[in-house]
Every structure is written in structure tokens, then in C-alpha cells.
Design a protein around this nucleic acid. Structure first.
Lengths: 200, 200
DNA sequence: CAAGGTTACATACAGCCTGCACGTAACTTA
DNA sequence: TAAGTTACGTGCAGGCTGTATGTAACCTTG
């Protein structure tokens, strides 16, 4: 059976998509260093040549995988948070959705564990910027504009809150009793958020 | 010239210390994956056999290096924080000392970037537990006992605060204007800490 | 103090993995 | 349809990790 004639853009898109999908699966399971390019391309059904043609190296593929995962989780968050609502409500529901999403090991391993080590902190956060980090900062900026928050600098505050969310997800994953650990975390974060919106 | 007769414990201690020192330097400069065992042992002045005899593998050496760095930074923190003082004062001065310490790339790269990726989150935090993380939790526990803080669970709260400190250090390192970024970070953390000790 | 045993170290080797070079096939353009 | 460009296939070189096996230093026991 002959494969139907495809445009170059189609070939490229299919190859890249197959490699990114394979990367999401295998990097999540075994970590960046734990999966070789041979395993990767076999899972994707392409050759190593295709990988090194489409991506400069294994690290570049990882960066693409990270952006892809970030896109997925951002969609989940956008769907979960109420469009209108005060900052505490928005952030609390966003955190709940984030913790749900982080039950998926793709996020923990790829985004939280290997991301900074493989790409370096700056590039890692740069990739998060158009996705989850941007979402947080947008919510903060809106609250600041509406007067729902004292005038704190939005950019570093967004980083701090994202770091809290990251640690929370990893902490829960390792907790003996996840349910009660999650309650404790939500209690702590709620207290911090309420404090944030209260002028002092 | 003949080397003086040494006890086995001396030989072991000298070899391990040399390898840990080499690891601190080289892992900090090039990251865990960026330095090979050959480079490592040449810097330490020992053979690869010595490394694999003293440590099971490269990862075990890294764990020892991480614990060593944590010990150093913990000493700095203990020296910097006032023995008596309310929670906000203690934590604020501890954060200042922590940010100072993180000017040293050993901490950023070894503790914050490579630690979770090389050892996994659980083992990474387990190594931090007797050092910086324990320090934070002890301060929180004391404040809770003294009534200087509402009764929040100390363990997850310690993790959250440590995560904030970690992100702050990395954020500053990447900031264009470090001085003003540090002021912003301190402003944010101070607000959060003050809120924490205020019953709501 | 001597001989056997144990610990610490040295080195050669096997296996794996990455990235590149070079060749081929698929598509595009004139 | 022929030339040119893009996408892909594959063998090779270099490096790196961990282990196996041998040797030297140290310790113990009679």
C-alpha cells in the first residue's frame, strides 16, 4: 500500500507531532536522561535522522514537549477558573485545577523536575511564561487594576505564587495521606491569598 | 618521598573529601550532566576506581555533595538569624542570608536546579530536611508554640516557604536589575509573612 | 612480628548513547 | 520533466558510565 502524497508541511507536522507525543510519554515515565533517542524514535515510528533533522538535538525536542504540556495544562486551568470572581476565588480554583492536573506525571516530571535542569531556569520559565505563569500574572494584574489587591509588583509575585503551586504539587505526590495533605496545603495557600488581598 | 603511614579511616576520609570538594566545584560550574567522572577524579587527584569504591555511582557522590553544600548554607543561616525575635524578623533575616548565600552558584545549580532532577524530589527534600528545611520548620514550630502564629500545619508550611525562598533566589539571579528585584521580592515576602502571623 | 584477611585503590574493557556525515527519497518549482 | 530543495535513513566516531579483575595498603590474630 502506497502512502498518499503529502505536502512537506504535512510530513514535518506529522513527524514533529509523533516525536512530541513520544517525548511526553517517555520523558514522563523515565525522565529526560532515562530515555535514549533510539527508544524515542521507535516509539514515534520515525528514524533518528528525522529527530535530528526536525530538532537540533534531544534538548530541543524536550523544550517542544515542555511547551506542549504547558499548553495542555493551561487549557485545563482556563476551563476550571470562573471568568468573574475575586482574586482569592480565582486563585483557589486555579490551584485546585493545577493540583488535579499534577496527578498526571507528565506535568510533575517534565515541567517541575526535569525542566529547570535540562533547559536551565531562565529558559524553563520563559517557556512557562506564555502559559501558566502568564495566566497567574494576568489574574494578578487584573486584581491590581480593580483595586482587589494592594499594589505589589505583579511579575515577582506571579513567580512566587507559581513556585508555591509547584511545591504543593510535588509535596502532595509524596505525601502518605494525599487527601489530608491536600487539605492542609489548601488551608495554607488560602490563608496566604486572603492575606494578600487585605491591605495592612 | 614516601607518604606517611595512614589509617584506613584517614585514607577514606581524604578521598571522600577530595571528591566532594571537586564535585562542589565542577557540578556548580557545569551541572551534573556536564561533568564526567574522568574530569571529576582528575580534579580530586584520585582515580575512577576510588570514586566507584567510595560511592556506588556518580549519583551517590552528587548526594554527598548536596548534603555538604546544605550544611554550609545552614551554618550561614544560623549565624545570620537573631536567636530571639518574632517569626517575621527571624524569617526575614533568614531570607536575606539565604539570598546572599545564593549568590554562590554552588547553591543555585547543585541545590536548586540539579538536585530534584538527579535525585528525585523525595530524596532531594529528604537531604534538605536536616538542614535548611528543618531550620524553617523549627522556627515555625516555635512560633506556633509561643502563640506567635495561628495554628497552621508546620510541615507543609515549611515546604511552601522554602519553595518561595528557592524561587526568589533563582528569580534574582536572572533579573536584569538585581537590586530592585530583591527589594520587590523582600516586599512581597514580608507582606506574606506579616499576613501569616496575623490571625484572621 | 609474621601470615592471613580485609579494605582501599588502579585499570582495562564492554556496552550504551549522542551527534554528525553522507547518501537517498519525497516533494516543489520553473 | 528536470533541477533544486526539503525531509529522512544509516553507519561511524567519540565520549561516558559502570564493572571486573588485579594490586597495594592496612589490620588482626596467633
Amino acid at each position: 500500500m502506497k502512502v498518499a502524497r503529502r505536502t512537506q508541511a504535512d510530513r514535518t507536522a506529522a513527524t514533529r507531532a509523533a516525536l512530541v507525543a513520544a517525548g511526553r510519554k517517555l520523558f514522563a515515565e523515565h525522565g529526560f536522561a532515562g530515555v535514549g533517542t533510539e527508544t524515542l524514535v521507535r516509539e514515534a515510528g520515525v528514524s533518528r535522522g528525522a529527530l535530528y533533522h526536525q530538532f537540533g538535538d534531544k534538548t530541543e525536542l524536550f523544550a517542544e514537549v515542555l511547551a506542549d504540556v504547558e499548553g495542555t495544562v493551561t487549557q485545563s486551568l482556563v476551563a476550571a477558573v470562573p471568568v468573574d470572581g475575586d482574586l482569592v476565588t480565582v486563585m483557589t480554583s486555579a490551584l485546585e485545577a493545577w493540583l488535579d492536573a499534577c496527578e498526571n506525571p507528565e506535568i510533575q516530571r517534565i515541567v517541575l523536575i526535569d525542566g529547570p535542569s535540562v533547559l536551565g531556569w531562565a529558559r524553563w520559565r520563559a517557556i512557562c511564561q506564555p502559559h501558566v505563569l502568564g495566566l497567574i500574572q494576568a489574574a494578578l494584574a487584573q486584581a491590581a487594576a480593580d483595586g482587589g489587591m494592594p499594589p505589589l509588583p505583579v511579575k515577582p509575585l506571579g513567580h512566587v505564587l507559581l513556585a508555591v503551586a509547584d511545591e504543593a504539587a510535588l509535596y502532595l505526590n509524596d505525601a502518605a495521606d494525599r487527601a489530608s495533605a491536600r487539605e492542609e496545603i489548601m488551608q495554607i495557600v488560602s490563608a496566604l491569598l486572603r492575606a494578600l488581598v487585605t491591605p495592612q
